[in-house]
């Protein structure tokens, strides 16, 4: 399977809470092919966000990742992101796994630094909070363009940045370029965010509930924009959502997660057309959205 861009094997993420150790991701395995859009569907607390943040090395909280493998294939080279994990773990016979968090953070940063932006980046929920409030959209966008092509001349960088704003269908790119986040609507902020993320020209884009908190009409526009931007399949995308319709509209394949586990994997077509047998939870999601359930266990 050399055409895979991303492979996650048996990922385990745990957090210490006041009531003890909690396992939020419990042995997740998934693959993402080059040019594929993979939807990750699940309710809040299902571990879908943590699974994808681990690909970027941005899992905050302790101890975080305590097991598994993540491989990112960047053209010719393969990056085993969790290669060094065993060296920071101490496993006792009794009690939970212990982790040297500081050393792990340092190792993660060293490993991820050349990959952030160029190989993988993310669009988060809450677009307004994901944009720097003290920088104009243009400034943030030009920085991204420079991540992709550091040697570009200044005027060319600006031209590219404006191009990206057009590509995400901003009405007045020049005005948006000079605007600050607080001057734009939530939907425009998310468009800007998408432009900023894509301007880094990543091979993998992670969209973590990018439509949460937006009006329903704006949500539809953002989903349509993602669909359009991914149409040429020049990059891969992990699209995380709790909205089954969005996921089915965008993704080639869908992974359904609950309680930190992958319940099932299916092609969007199969889910849409009600082909095959569905897990009970998936069936209930489909039914709740008024979609054909197929031969669900619940039916």
């Amino acid at each position: 399977m050399s055409a895979n861009l991303l492979e996650i094997r048996d990922l385990v993420i745990e957090f210490d809470t006041p009531t003890g150790r909690r396992r939020v991701v419990d042995g997740v395995t998934l693959e993402l092919a080059e040019g594929e859009v993979l939807g990750i569907l699940g309710e809040s607390g299902s571990g879908k966000t943590m699974t994808t943040l681990s690909v970027l090395g941005l899992v905050a909280g302790r101890p975080g990742i305590v097991g598994g493998e993540i491989r990112l294939h960047d053209g010719t080279s393969t990056h085993a992101l969790l290669e060094a994990l065993p060296t920071v773990l101490r496993r006792r016979d009794d009690g939970p796994v212990r982790k040297d968090d500081r050393r792990w953070q340092r190792l993660v940063h060293r490993r991820m630094r050349p990959l952030w932006g160029r190989v993988a980046t993310a669009v988060f929920q809450n677009p307004r909070q994901s944009l720097d409030p003290l920088m104009s959209i243009g400034e943030q966008l030009t920085e991204s363009v420079r991540v992709a092509e550091p040697t570009l001349a200044k005027t060319e960088v600006r031209r590219r940045a404006l191009e990206w704003l057009e590509r995400v269908h901003m009405n007045d790119p020049a005005r948006v370029f000079a605007s600050y986040p607080h001057e734009l609507s939530g939907g425009m902020c998310q468009r800007a965010m998408i432009a900023i993320a894509l301007a880094c020209q990543p091979r993998l884009l992670i969209a973590d509930e990018p439509t949460t908190g937006l009006d329903s009409t704006v949500r539809a526009e953002i989903v349509a924009l993602f669909r359009e931007l991914m149409a040429d399949r020049r990059r891969s995308m992990l699209y995380i959502s709790h909205d089954i319709r969005e996921v089915l509209h965008l993704a080639d394949r869908v992974i359904v997660m609950r309680h930190g586990r992958v319940l099932e994997t299916a092609s969007s077509a199969a889910l849409r057309d009600g082909i095959g047998t569905r897990a009970e939870y998936t069936a209930s999601l489909l039914a709740a959205s008024g979609l054909a359930v197929g031969q669900g266990d619940a039916a």
Binding site: L56, L58, A60, H109, R113, L115, W116, G117, R118, A120, T121, A122, F124, N126, Q129, S130, L131, D132, P133, M135, E143, S144, V147, M193, I196, A197, C200
Partner: peptide
Amino acid sequence: ASEDYILAHVAHGFRPARILVYH
């Protein structure tokens, strides 16, 4: 450091020194 936009800067691959000194 825990603000979303600083995380976003990191994820986009902005240089850490630049994030700290400029941003």
